[in-house]
Design a protein around this nucleic acid. Structure first.
Lengths: 198, 198
DNA sequence: CCATTAATTGAACGAGTGTTGAATTAGAAT
DNA sequence: ATTCTAATTCAACACTCGTTCAATTAATGG
């Protein structure tokens, strides 16, 4: 067992990216405060000071680790726009339930939780979550009042994920099956899509 | 300006309650981690060690400071049950928007946020929020599948408050007026109340 | 009145935090 | 080759936090 000596490593290094990945997952998992620079460094297999060396501070590392929306998520609006409206609602609710249920795909929602008590981080997240994900869906679908609809859709999504991830509704109500969730979620989304906002 | 000397004060003291109040508001405002015992003590006008003396630890103080649902909230189900269903939906959405908008009434939702990264605190909050507030409403209204409806209602409420408190949707979309919010919220709640869950 | 207990402060401890500086090694540039 | 810069570790600093301990003052019970 050789301990790592100081100095630059041979060849090219992906330490920077590994720190970024570790930070992203840990922030999403434990929130900002509970995640320490030392934890991030350990998961990245690196010295804590290296993270600071690369990003300047924990604060800036957090900002840099905010997830950009996946290409898949950015492509979704155009795909959905091709479908008839009822189909679009069903597809969206499927996608939402998926992104809420699957543990790795919930990066953005984990980040929302991480940012929830940090006013500085909120604007950036709002831009990503609503501005780049929800709003494009609404405009691409050609709906009236897209901003309002985007916000209301975000209400459903965040509420769903909050209850799912954080309050873990499944543990106490296992008989609330996904089918029932999906059914009502679909209707709710359809409502957001179709309601005439005077 | 006389500085406070050690020793018991004359007469009866409400220090314990003041610590509890300070803790409740600060936890709801800043979350668990960002709230320090020293902050609580300062707001309560008291020495930090007194808070520990009374409650044993910050952990136990947090548990003790969890808000019980107000008597008003507990009385709501019976009041709503008297109304026709459409009226009930409107009344509920009003109540929800109110509780989400007013800064002091959002204690429970602030606590949910505070507890969000602390698994130990989650069960207690779920019991209060869903079990004692949402579920009674549904059963009192005599609806089928009250558990599912309670959870779905909670989805709307938490999502609404999350966006309002945390992402502060108003700052970037000031033109999203409360009327539009209220209109769609009412419809969503009505949907939760009336949809036939197969 | 005396002993006990409750309430309160002040000072300090120990653990953990983000961050810095020096030292070391490797690639890049001249 | 030599110089410069980038990457890396290690040790340490300053700070904050939760908590503890001793001291002090007031109420309470016998």
């Amino acid at each position: 067992m050789t301990i790592a000596r100081a100095g630059r490593r041979k060849g090219t290094s992906d330490s920077r990216q590994q720190i970024l990945d570790a930070a992203r997952s840990l922030f999403a998992e434990h929130g900002y405060q509970r995640t320490t620079v030392r934890m991030i460094a350990e998961r990245a297999g690196v010295d804590p000071s290296l993270a600071i060396y690369f990003f300047g501070s924990k604060e800036q590392l957090f900002a840099a680790s905010m997830p950009a929306p996946s290409e898949e998520a950015l492509a979704a609006p155009k795909l959905l726009a091709a479908l008839p409206r009822a189909e679009a609602a069903r597809a969206m609710s499927h996608r939402i339930l998926e992104s809420v249920t699957s543990p790795e795909a919930s990066n953005i929602l984990g980040m929302m939780r991480a940012a929830s008590s940090r006013p500085e981080a909120v604007a950036q997240l709002r831009e990503v979550f609503i501005g780049r994900m929800m709003l494009p869906m609404m405009t691409e679908l050609g709906l009236s009042r897209p901003k309002e609809r985007a916000v209301l859709l975000a209400v459903v999504v965040t509420g769903m994920s909050f209850l799912h991830e954080i309050l873990d509704i499944r543990q106490e109500w296992p008989d609330l099956e996904e089918n029932a969730q999906l059914a009502l979620l679909t209707q709710t989304i359809e409502l957001v899509l179709t309601t005439d906002l005077e």
